[in-house]
Simulated scan of single mutants.
Amino acid sequence: MTITRRAYLAGLAAVAAGTLAFTTPAFADTFKMGLLVPGSVSEEGWNRIGYNALKGVEKELGAQVSYVELQQNPASFEKAFRDYASQGFNVILGHGFEFQDAALDVAADYPDTVFLISSSYIHEGNVIGLNTDTSQPFYLMGYVAARMGKKAGLVGGMEIPPIQQAFEGFKNGARSVDPDFPISEAYIGNFTDTTAAKEASLSMISQGADFLVPNASGATVGGYQAIAESGGDVKTFSIFSDFTEVAPNNILGLYVADYAQGVVRVVKSIQDGEVPSWNIEFGLKDADVIKFSFRDDVENGVPADIREEVEDVKAKIAAGEIKTRNR
């Protein structure tokens, strides 16, 4: 089950115009939110972002919260959704595109529960996508890579739309500077194998990549370990969380997704009886959610002239003047 292209485009137009329609669910007195994560929340990166969002809802909205850590198993996804929904949870966040199908299978049986899916463009009934357009900050990284490097490498977890879109943004950013800028791309096939991420990164570095970005959830740290072993020769950006302790001499800047702010905003509207009728997309225009910055404490950091160029590009992306994805 997927949203049609026409409905998706109409949804984006409604979001841009600020004309979301709303419906009112029937909620119990105690507002409850559950979270499903594909791994451990103790790891810096994607899973921790989901956990921080849950804790933000607990702190700011006074909700009763719970979470479950899962492996990549669709059957366990469906069971977890059903467990929370049957216990009267008002909102359940499946933190990743891979939870979308399971939510669609369960949602019809629990019409009073809102199922939120991270990194998704879905909107069917009470299943709503919350997409952070990572192609936008990755476009900025690609721009810097092409201005400062000779060849880039991208190491992903699984070849799923959110990671593909991020890498698409990187490639478009780099090729806006140099259409022939060489970029290698590889996927390790999971989000947990730190060694595989490290080995794929080392392979790209051995083939001449002097700018590399890993994007593999819990396995991401393996990529930064490989980058750190290069000394200061390979540059990168820290994504989703702060990995500067892993590769202090290599990270030029940080893309930090304060996803909690966006999730709290959406969940509050649901708590108030207003369920968005379209998928939600956060971008560089949402400065409280997507934060992109340069480091001043790293040797051979991004020069002032390139920083100025990037700030100009960033403003144009936020204004909708530059498209970071091929859609």
Rank of each mutant, 00 (worst) to 15 (best):
residue 173 G to E: 07
residue 25 P to L: 04
residue 255 Y to W: 15
residue 312 D to E: 15
residue 308 E to Q: 14
residue 132 T to Q: 09
residue 96 G to M: 09
residue 150 K to P: 02
residue 93 L to Y: 11
residue 220 T to H: 05
residue 236 T to L: 07
residue 154 L to T: 13
residue 28 A to P: 03
residue 260 A to S: 15
residue 91 V to T: 12
residue 69 E to M: 06
residue 151 K to A: 13
residue 117 I to C: 03
residue 260 A to T: 01
residue 323 K to C: 00
residue 234 V to N: 02
residue 318 A to I: 08
residue 296 D to S: 13
residue 208 G to S: 08
residue 260 A to L: 06
residue 306 I to G: 01
residue 158 M to S: 10
residue 73 N to W: 04
residue 227 I to G: 00
residue 30 T to F: 05
residue 26 A to Q: 13
residue 55 K to W: 04
residue 45 G to S: 07
residue 292 F to D: 01
residue 273 G to S: 10
residue 100 Q to D: 08
residue 227 I to S: 00
residue 257 A to C: 14
residue 86 S to P: 07
residue 315 A to Q: 12
residue 274 E to H: 15
residue 264 V to E: 13
residue 145 A to I: 03
residue 93 L to W: 08
residue 270 I to P: 03
residue 22 F to Q: 04
residue 66 S to D: 11
residue 27 F to W: 14
residue 141 M to P: 02
residue 80 A to E: 09
residue 130 L to F: 09
residue 156 G to Y: 06
residue 122 I to C: 06
residue 38 P to A: 09
residue 151 K to D: 10
residue 186 A to H: 11
residue 189 G to H: 04
residue 220 T to V: 02
residue 239 I to E: 10
residue 143 Y to I: 01
residue 265 R to C: 02
residue 316 K to N: 09
residue 210 D to G: 03
residue 235 K to H: 04
residue 297 D to M: 12
residue 114 V to T: 14
residue 198 K to G: 14
residue 243 F to V: 01
residue 145 A to N: 11
residue 101 D to M: 12
residue 226 A to N: 05
residue 68 V to A: 12
residue 323 K to S: 04
residue 21 A to N: 07
residue 231 G to K: 01
residue 280 I to M: 06
residue 189 G to C: 06
residue 139 Y to W: 07
residue 209 A to W: 02
residue 88 G to W: 10
residue 12 L to Y: 01
residue 313 V to W: 02
residue 286 D to K: 00
residue 108 A to S: 15
residue 32 K to L: 13
residue 301 G to L: 11
residue 136 Q to A: 02
residue 117 I to G: 01
residue 73 N to G: 02
residue 81 F to Q: 06
residue 304 A to T: 11
residue 197 A to W: 08
residue 58 E to I: 14
residue 51 Y to V: 00
residue 34 G to N: 07
residue 40 S to M: 11
residue 204 M to W: 10
residue 254 L to R: 04
residue 164 Q to T: 15
residue 86 S to K: 13
residue 186 A to K: 13
residue 91 V to E: 12
residue 2 T to V: 11
residue 58 E to F: 09
residue 308 E to T: 15
residue 3 I to G: 05
residue 105 D to I: 03
residue 53 A to L: 06
residue 69 E to I: 07
residue 181 F to Y: 12
residue 64 Q to P: 03
residue 35 L to H: 06
residue 196 A to P: 09
residue 132 T to L: 06
residue 188 I to M: 14
residue 273 G to N: 12
residue 173 G to S: 07
residue 138 F to Y: 15
residue 77 F to I: 05
residue 161 P to C: 15
residue 47 N to S: 07
residue 168 E to L: 03
residue 30 T to A: 13
residue 15 V to L: 12
residue 239 I to F: 12
residue 216 A to I: 09
residue 318 A to G: 07
residue 209 A to G: 08
residue 201 S to C: 09
residue 216 A to D: 05
residue 293 S to H: 05
residue 169 G to K: 00
residue 241 S to Y: 11
residue 187 Y to P: 04
residue 290 I to Y: 00
residue 59 K to L: 09
residue 11 G to N: 11
residue 182 P to L: 08
residue 158 M to I: 14
residue 158 M to R: 14
residue 165 Q to D: 15
residue 81 F to Y: 15
residue 136 Q to V: 00
residue 167 F to H: 13
residue 72 Q to Y: 04
residue 227 I to R: 00
residue 204 M to G: 10
residue 314 K to N: 11
residue 225 Q to M: 08
residue 114 V to N: 07
residue 168 E to T: 14
residue 307 R to C: 03
residue 177 V to Q: 03
residue 48 R to M: 14
